[in-house]
Design a binder for these strands. Sequence first.
DNA 1: TAGATTGTTAATCGATTAACAATC
DNA 2: TAGATTGTTAATCGATTAACAATC
Lengths: 215, 215
Amino acid sequence: MSKTDGQISMPVIRRLPKYYRCLCTLEQSGVDKISSRKLAEIMNITASQVRQDLNCFGGFGQQGYGYFVATLRQEIAKLLGIDTIKNTVIYGIGNLGRAVLYHFDFEKFGFQLKGLFDKNPELVGTELAGFIINDDSKLDKFMSENSIDAAILCLPTTSAGAVVEKLYAAGIRNFLNFSHYDIRTNYPDCAVEDVHLSESLMTLAYLMKSKDRNN
Amino acid sequence: MSKTDGQISMPVIRRLPKYYRCLCTLEQSGVDKISSRKLAEIMNITASQVRQDLNCFGGFGQQGYGYFVATLRQEIAKLLGIDTIKNTVIYGIGNLGRAVLYHFDFEKFGFQLKGLFDKNPELVGTELAGFIINDDSKLDKFMSENSIDAAILCLPTTSAGAVVEKLYAAGIRNFLNFSHYDIRTNYPDCAVEDVHLSESLMTLAYLMKSKDRNN
DNA sequence: TAGATTGTTAATCGATTAACAATC
DNA sequence: TAGATTGTTAATCGATTAACAATC
């Protein structure tokens, strides 16, 4: 389906979720076709960029007409891979892990939560959101029995290294990483998406400062 | 102090927190000087980029020697504005708000938490982490009395619009935004840092898929 | 002084935007 | 057919990298 299976650039990849979200909203509002011009306007980007981005993957539009919202939304879902099921565990059930557990729309993006892990003995064995919290002793057995695809790491940086080592040994190669532990450098064959909340705080601090200076 | 007060590009701004974090680690390990070459190696970027980035703001290095770790760390802290106090509230005390409350190192980056807000009557009046949860009726008075600088929005997108309107009216111009409500478009004079966790999930899905395809 | 490494200018690379022929 | 809008190529813009003179 895709024009080039050649590498898609990160800027393009990072815009795909934005297209997806926008198209979901449009579809829900009952819009059934849209031009690159209008889509671009909504998303605050250029129409050229919309067409350029979409054509990395194939011609989804109708010349002289535009794009079918529902079709395009589905195509992008396929491109993103959010239409297939990815069995997932959360490792680290502190406040962050709990927020992730309750706040994330896992299923909406194909992530199926299969289990919770923590090494705090006070948590292990207790139930949360229908899951019994496991400890490391269950790791290997659990991962293979449930064919786990991805782990969400809600850990402090200090303990992340040891945990990743175990998860990697148990076959996990895909991580959503909230810690500052650098998975990619140590395990180059993993898919890693980092979420660095502290960097967001620092960036906000910078933006506040520079805005104030300009006024 | 800065060479040009001209606009610093977003890529550079987003690297500043990474430099800061790296320098903190180095300082804690007792390293007192570092060359652009070594710093670049640790951060997986080029030495050229390190020097180019730092020189957006001024000459922090010693020719023929390198950079003093402690000094550079402090300079970047100043650039980021994390060395000054920013009075902050959290609006939305669900799971996400709680995770933010307990998980974030606010003080480390100069954000001083001053209060919690929510409109759920069951939460309002209860105490959390030493703060009584307020409702909107206290908003105006609270914001001016405590000279609040920034709000962290831990809300669903549907309720974010109305809340931002109230916060804006109460004088708030700086937001860390976990919702998909587009603050910037509606209030262009605000400093906004968006954290879109659902986009991280989708990006991970894409990376998993494209990795698998290449193997 | 010689060696090292910065600050800075120039060259390259990649991403965004503009333009337009193809076509519905 | 005429009008609209895509797909795609070419032009522009900006960011990264390389090179080197300045200097500690």
